[in-house]
């Protein structure tokens, strides 16, 4: 009985911990998407695109605005980031997924952020 109780409480604590970490992971991911986009060592999208409130943006690529309306299909948006040269062989945009510049998880959080623009 005592042991059972102990086990139960331990389980609740574990589950509780898990839930807490899940919750903070989603919050962190949302913030990370933007960080990944702006970070020079990660996406560095600002090098070429005007986006959000980022400053010192370049103008090699088009401004990233109204993403929901222009890219209703998430897979199409993801493909552009995964490997822009699939669509435009001479694209200057780095193939972030194909060349392992960003992980799949990082690209997913980036997409979440892009859809806030």
């Amino acid at each position: 009985m005592n042991i059972l109780l102990k086990k139960l409480t331990l389980n609740t604590i574990l589950i509780g911990l898990l839930l807490v970490s899940f919750a903070s992971a989603t919050v962190a991911d949302k913030a990370d998407g933007k960080k990944i986009a702006f970070d020079r060592k990660k996406g560095n999208c600002l090098a070429c695109h005007v986006m959000g409130d980022g400053d010192m943006a370049g103008n090699v690529g088009p401004p990233l605005i109204a993403m929901k309306i222009r890219f209703p299909d998430r897979a199409i948006l993801k493909a552009q980031i995964w490997d822009a040269t699939a669509k435009n062989p001479i694209s200057i945009m780095p193939p972030f997924g194909k060349h392992y510049v960003l992980t799949d998880d990082e690209i997913e959080s980036l997409l979440d952020y892009l859809y806030t623009l």
């Binding site: 600002l46 090098a47 370049g58 103008n59 090699v60 001479i90 200057i92």
Partner: peptide, 9 residues
């Protein structure tokens, strides 16, 4: 291809 354009500043 992109001479004259800006990367960052």
């Amino acid at each position: 291809q992109n001479a004259g354009r800006k990367v960052r500043s």
